[in-house]
């Protein structure tokens, strides 16, 4: 096992463990903090793939904005220090079955697909990956249409939020 593989296994184990803790912790704020650790693990995986920009954006957007807003909303509920009720209801067996089936199906499909044998692309020859990414986002040959659609979607969401919050 090389050093890189060892780090990957460590980060993957941390991410999975935190993800399990998110759904099993009875306390909502603690669950949100476990979620932050899980998201941080995903950022670590991006770093291992030489995608520093994605890793940093993952931390800024998911931890700095989304997770903080979630904790903020949870804290506004009453009795934040108390544990919420039981973690499962009567259909937990069925849900576990579906989850296991989905995991099995995904593993089967991914090991069969040609992507399973692909190596991570080598970025060391690209002089400035961030500049290349920026050009790709606004180039008509690449991702300009998805980029603009995402921008319009966010704008619409923002206008909607302002309309809902507007004092009549």
């Amino acid at each position: 096992m090389t050093g890189l593989e060892f780090v990957f296994v460590l980060i993957a184990a941390l991410t999975l463990f935190s993800a399990v803790m998110v759904v099993t912790t009875p306390n909502m704020v603690r669950a949100a903090l476990w979620l932050i650790l899980a998201l941080f693990g995903v950022a670590g995986t991006f770093v291992l793939l030489n995608a520093a920009f994605l890793a940093v954006v993952q931390v800024v957007v998911y931890i700095g904005a989304i997770a903080v807003l979630m904790i903020f909303a949870i804290m506004l509920t009453r009795k934040v220090m108390k544990d919420s009720g039981p973690q499962t209801n009567s259909t937990w067996g069925l849900a576990a079955l579906i989850a296991a089936a989905l995991f099995g199906g995904l593993t089967f499909a991914l090991t069969r697909s040609p992507a399973a044998t692909l190596m991570a692309p080598d970025f060391s020859t690209v002089s400035d990956p961030v500049a290349e990414l920026g050009r790709a986002l606004v180039s008509p040959q690449a991702y300009v249409i998805p980029f603009e659609v995402a921008s319009v979607l966010l704008l619409a969401a923002m206008i909607g939020a302002i309309y809902v919050a507007w004092k009549k």
Binding site: I36, V56, V59, V60, I63, G64, A65, A67, V68
Partner: peptide
């Protein structure tokens, strides 16, 4: 900016 987010947390 990203590590600053941990200060908020």
């Amino acid at each position: 900016v990203a590590v600053g987010a941990f200060g908020v947390v």
